[in-house]
């Protein structure tokens, strides 16, 4: 009885609407400058159990081609087990992995943007990967939350 009541309360709490919005992008403004945010972001990706497979310095390419830009980079992240799963069982997803986070400077602040992995449910409805996409979404939100809480 009590556990049932507890469950009801829990369900009621879960139903309280929060930010649970299926946005197409996950975006955050971080009140810290670019270099520091870049360091925290990479540490946060690793703390979430992913590897930073590469950092692409888009800004360097742009400036060396004569175009003005503030710092602009891409952080690629992946987990070996998930890469393996995709390569062997779900090759259609290959062009989308490793996942990537866009990070760019806006004055003394920094913007993080990434595609909401839940969007993959629309791209790949038949792969049966809903759980993986939900996990990715949760992980990215947690990565961003951690960067934000360290500001």
């Amino acid at each position: 009885m009590i556990t049932r009541m507890y469950k009801l309360v829990l369900i009621a709490l879960l139903l309280i609407p929060s930010f649970a919005q299926a946005d197409d992008l996950i975006m955050r403004r971080i009140a810290v400058d670019f270099p520091e945010t870049m360091t925290t972001l990479q540490a946060s990706v690793i703390a979430q159990g992913y590897r930073v497979s590469r950092v692409q310095r888009v800004d360097i390419g742009l400036t060396s081609s004569g175009y003005d830009t503030a710092e602009y980079r891409l952080v690629f992240m992946a987990r070996p087990d998930q890469m393996d799963l995709i390569e062997t069982k779900h090759p259609d997803l290959i062009p989308f992995v490793p996942l990537k986070i866009t990070i760019f400077a806006e004055g003394n602040e920094t913007i993080l943007v990434t595609l909401n992995p839940l969007k993959f449910n629309e791209f790949f409805p038949d792969e049966g990967l809903g759980d993986l996409f939900a996990q990715w979404e949760k992980d990215i939100v947690e990565i961003f939350d951690r960067v934000q809480s360290e500001q």
Partner: peptide, 9 residues
């Protein structure tokens, strides 16, 4: 739109 990193490179 500066957010287009998604398409890069």
């Amino acid at each position: 739109d500066p957010r287009i990193g998604l398409f890069l490179p």
